[in-house]
Design a protein around this nucleic acid. Sequence first.
RNA 1: CGGGGCGUGGCGCAGCUUGGUAGCGCGCCUGCUUUGGGAGCAGGAGGUCCUCGGUUCAAAUCCGGGCGCCCCGACCA
Length: 563
Amino acid sequence: MHRLSQLLLPTEKQPPADAEALSHQLMVRAGLVRQLGSGLWSWLPAGWRIHQKVIAIIREEMDLSGAQEVSMPVLQPRELWEKTGRDHINELFKLEDRKGSPMVLALTHEEAMTHHVAQLVRSYRELPFTLYQVQLKERDEARPRAGILRTREFVMKDAYSFDRDEAGLDESYAQQTVAYARIYDRCGLQWYRVESDVGMMGGAGAHEYMAPCAAGEDEIVLADGYSANVEVASTTPEPAQYADPVGAPEAVSTPAAKTIDEVAAQLGVHASALLKAVVVVGPEGLVLVLVRGDDSVQDTKLENALGGKVRPANDAEIAKAIGPAGFLGPVGMVDPSTKVLLDRAVEDVEVIVGANRPDEHLKGVQHGRDFTAQRADVRLAKPTDTIDGKPVEIVPAIEIGNIFKLGTRYSDALGATFLDEDGARHSIVMGSYGIGPARIVAASAEQFGDERGIAWPAAIAPWQVHVAGLGKPGSEEAEAAEKLATTLSEAGFEVILDDRSGGAGAKLADAELIGAPLRLVIGRRTLERGEAEAQLRRGSVDLDAVSLADPVPAVRAHLASAP
RNA sequence: CGGGGCGUGGCGCAGCUUGGUAGCGCGCCUGCUUUGGGAGCAGGAGGUCCUCGGUUCAAAUCCGGGCGCCCCGACCA
């Protein structure tokens, strides 16, 4: 049992002035966390209980999946990171020890894990296995934000699977998928598993686990039977509204009309009758990217299509290769060999494009007839899109976990190999699997927070039962609350007792702020009936009163009904 | 990294324009009263006004440098 009179649980009526995200405001108001510096957060007792409960669930499910827990240093020799080429990552904290030896603070543990496995594993007989740890990660984030949503130091559960081949990896990956679903379900979150970009991790496939909420940094595309990050989502736009065909390219005057809207207005056509031109410099040089006029380019999809990082081209580069900015098109480019990338959603019909001459556009331009281009899906999904005819929804979400098929990128770099039955050497095939417990906590606060506090899912609530006696210390109500809390605590429930001398309003308000799933209140009237009033925090649902003479069965039943 | 904003008791803020006694609400401490929705009265404690320097008889206030924090964007293994 914990007593509110003794607990370091500093609740606040007002949120910090600089807190924007709901979870940030509520977690500070509820006395769960306090800030030490930008992106650096300390957990106070109640908050740490929640965090630890999430970790306990993760640990149980990891162990159940067959993964083995280890622990590796956060402080590591930079040499290790030079071998995988990740030593130049901006987010990597770099430092030196007193001898001047280059060190880093790990932002994940692929290098360390793979290093050890490379030393320890010799034979296919030792594979497969999966290692995990619950360990700090350090990242020099360009912009920490939203309380504990994006921090520079955080605890991560990171797991790494080691298999002899792709088929084995698929199996390990599937095992983690099962464990992840159980973890998020048990934590009581609303979540989606979405297809994701493989990012700089490389590899053969990746999924993210996303908790939809207003403060989400990512956007996910949802449809019946489909879910994907907008960075990879592939959807179908509404049908375009084309201008009447004219048979061949034909110049039209569009004075000073540089934007799609201006051109569409001057010509009296819908934006989808035009092509929008975006010029970037990719790994193989300058590219003219064309999407429908009412679409926009999704950078990650474009980078995947071009096979590497891209940057916007500057006006000089554009003028040299194509034409005057604002009037760009695939026909009549200054350098006709300039690569053209055409979005998959653009049909082979006549559209309107820039003429590569000032104040002029061309109508009647058709792909395949008037110009050629590489095809790729690079458009940003929109809420009006469909997928297989079904409407999509695009919602913000917090990334609460991810899983990657790494392949042999790290095992190749660090020499993690094994000998097969025939004595042939192969690289170990790896996967990596991360979960941020703090993100789960924050996502819960986002999903289940209201203006009064956070209605924690029962599985991760800091306490199961909140007992409040409304009288002052020493009163009959307070004595009865004390006795009730003791009985429940001895019966194995996690109880927090409000034994403070404050007024009833303050006690009830704090109970809602702290957010235990079940609240038991003893006031003068309820005491006269020999009962405690019972209420579920989620939804403020009034339950049958609990008998003070025999409270345990009723409390057990009430908690079983708590979400 | 680009743009914007902010730094004044624990929290939220005013004061700065026009230099001169640091102030308000909440919280905290003591006493009495009060106890079903953030109580009342009385008394009290608590602040290098982010920091360094400059101007001035005098700086929270004006000027300059630095540091810190937040928000938007870029970025985000």
